[in-house]
Design a protein around this nucleic acid. Sequence first.
DNA 1: TTGCATATTTTATTTTTGTTAAAATGATTA
DNA 2: TAATCATTTTAACAAAAATAAAATATGCAA
Lengths: 197, 197
Amino acid sequence: MKNLLFEFISKYISLTEDEKQILINLDIFHSFKKGAVLLEEGQKSNKGYFVLKGCIRSYYVIDGEEKTTAFYTEMEGLTPSCVLNGKCSKNTISCVEDSILTVSDPNMEAEIFQKFPKFETMCRVLSEEILVKQQLDFDAFKVSSPEQRYLNLLEKRPDLIQRVPQYQLASFLGIKPQSLSRLRTRVIEKNKNSVLS
Amino acid sequence: MKNLLFEFISKYISLTEDEKQILINLDIFHSFKKGAVLLEEGQKSNKGYFVLKGCIRSYYVIDGEEKTTAFYTEMEGLTPSCVLNGKCSKNTISCVEDSILTVSDPNMEAEIFQKFPKFETMCRVLSEEILVKQQLDFDAFKVSSPEQRYLNLLEKRPDLIQRVPQYQLASFLGIKPQSLSRLRTRVIEKNKNSVLS
DNA sequence: TTGCATATTTTATTTTTGTTAAAATGATTA
DNA sequence: TAATCATTTTAACAAAAATAAAATATGCAA
């Protein structure tokens, strides 16, 4: 598991064995069972997560209904908003599958950044990359119809459609589960026709 | 104008006069006329922008129609995706108003980061803050109806509704100009009733 | 200033999604 | 296995958005 993390880090900076050992000594690797709650609505937390294996999701409960807004899978990281703004969380973070995650907090980061400035450089670069990626995702969401969003998801993250229940995908796509069900039959119908012709 | 920038920076780090002078010497302050294009679709660029005064927007041209996805106003910054991924830009960045911006590129950043590591810390923190803020915006967008999005914009960025043509706001809200027009009359109608009762 | 061209907003018709309710299917476990 | 709970599908109807077309506003040149 550790190697997954170091392989990922190696894309940005190179670490000596000593540096790796220091990271390991921070005891950041943790396993969670499917359904485990990492952050509960109304609570505060200073923990950030990085997915080595598995899948976690963020959701809000609005008028008694779960609204899923994000999924994080292998090699994706998440810092809940409450870590930075100190407010109570409006959303819940939980594991969709059994997962292996790294867990860290600002104190640990400060310690590492002080010891290895290149680690802060990596985090800056990573953060900027993710920001750009998310901006593109947001753009695509805005300019697309629900059907286009579904087709786009099918292309870009086909695994999610397998790993995650449809009613969670629906709010992730900004629509209701019933609409997603309808939309899918429509898409399948169209494909039939285009294959025939 | 310079003071606006230094005031902003002072929220994150403190700069000596020498450090400020070095920043000024980089010649990052530039004025642009309304309509000026900062980045054109299909082009590459390594320039990032920070708005000191004015307003710039990002838009895509899809099937001959402009789809506005973002506005940046005072004290907001933008790094186009092509700066990081090196690909041709899919969107256009242009000035909605006469604007005063800082313009920078990765080389300039590298130079500053090397001279003042605290500057890189600021950029990391800023980037993480913006990332969290954008995630919250994206979440709110997903769980809201167009009408709720409009009301939310009215509350959070009322200036935009004054500064920007309605058809640009529409795609920013993920709908067509026609729908926004109808939606507004609906909202006004509701307000009438609630004022009467 | 008028008149024209373009930009922007509004108004009708069609399509899609939301809503509510219920049924069908699938998974879990007592 | 039956019983329960979770998830997906289907149906009917209301509401909202997309599409298409018209109306209005704006900027600019003669």
